[in-house]
């Protein structure tokens, strides 16, 4: 039985690699791109900046060693979703290459870095928080309309351009739902940002992304998600038992912002607002221009350099 199971998994790995060969571009990317600097290290791979030799355009390349990937099907899913879901608030997928066991995914590069640096190193005002929430909600409305759940919304996966543009990235854990199977149960995401229905292993749908957006809004207020000082297991327990997290000095926030947070961080999924509904929330009328994020991006970069 063990051998059969092992054989079944083995076959599916080969099937996945075969499928990947049908998707990727044939050719050696080392001859098309000059790798520059390592800018990120995640569980699934390493991210570099690179210059496309032909055009001189700066791109980001995510490099993954397939043999080290426990769930290869997620990689195929990531490429297909990014390739078929182009949107101004989604990092643009450009190309992909298979070099032996190494998969290269070439994407648009945003030099402003991730939102995490901005939330941990600077203070954002409500107008700026509203603007970022609006941009992410636009991406989520588009994805949810196309039956895609991101499942890992957090500041680390929001990239910024120097002009203040805001884009969602890392579709390595997203789920494509269908009318027959519009719910999922596998626990996927980052513990501190997980919705209660995910933590308690109930069936969940697109609104898990809305909860995570609410937690990300707390990041933009406090610099980190609730319970980050706890270990992940205890954080899951606290999410399951406390439901909506406490926000320190919540009374200092405007009533509109407090209501926006309440609509995102609603434990009853049916009562929790959708992306489309939230895009009409009056809090988003407080949006300041995205260009105001430029100063925060520069300040965050100087601060992280200083570390």
């Amino acid at each position: 039985a063990q051998q059969m199971k092992q054989k079944k998994k083995k076959m599916s790995d080969e099937e996945i690699i075969e499928k990947l060969r049908g998707i990727v571009t044939i050719g050696d990317p080392n001859r098309k791109f000059t790798k520059m600097e390592k800018i990120g290290q995640g569980a699934s791979g390493t991210v570099f900046t690179a210059i496309e030799i032909l055009t001189g355009m700066e791109v980001a390349i995510k490099q993954m060693n397939l043999s080290q990937q426990p769930k290869k099907e997620l990689i195929v899913n990531e490429i297909l979703v990014m390739r078929e879901n182009k949107h101004p608030n989604v990092v643009n997928y450009l190309d992909s290459y298979l070099v032996g066991e190494e998969l290269w995914v070439v994407m648009e590069y945003l030099p402003g870095g991730s939102l995490t640096d901005v939330v941990t190193e600077t203070c954002m005002d409500e107008g700026q928080i509203a603007a970022v929430c609006r941009e992410v909600l636009q991406a989520l409305e588009f994805l949810h309309y196309n039956h895609v759940i991101h499942r890992d919304i957090k500041s680390d996966n929001i990239l910024l351009g120097m002009d203040g543009s805001v884009k969602l990235t890392d579709f390595g854990f997203c789920a494509q739902i269908s009318p027959e199977q519009n719910k999922r149960t596998t626990m996927v995401g980052t513990p501190y940002w997980m919705a209660p229905e995910v933590v308690t292993r109930k069936q969940y749908g697109p609104k898990v992304d809305i909860w995570s957006l609410g937690i990300m809004a707390i990041e933009m207020i406090e610099g980190e998600p609730p319970y980050l000082n706890e270990n992940p297991l205890r954080a899951l327990y606290l999410i399951a038992t406390n439901g909506k997290p406490e926000i320190k000095e919540k009374e200092k926030l405007s009533p509109l912002f407090q209501d926006f947070l309440d609509k995102c961080l609603e434990c009853d999924v049916d009562k929790r607002w959708s992306a489309s509904e939230l895009l009409k929330h009056p809090f988003l009328k407080l949006c300041r221009p995205l260009t105001t994020l430029h100063a925060l991006i520069v300040a965050a970069r100087d601060a992280t350099k200083g570390h």
Partner: peptide, 19 residues
């Protein structure tokens, strides 16, 4: 500056080792 613990920010799929 606010503290960031990289390990805690990793994404989990299914049952992580610590569960």
């Amino acid at each position: 500056g606010k503290r960031r613990d990289r390990r805690k920010r990793y994404t989990v799929v299914g049952n992580p080792y610590w569960m």
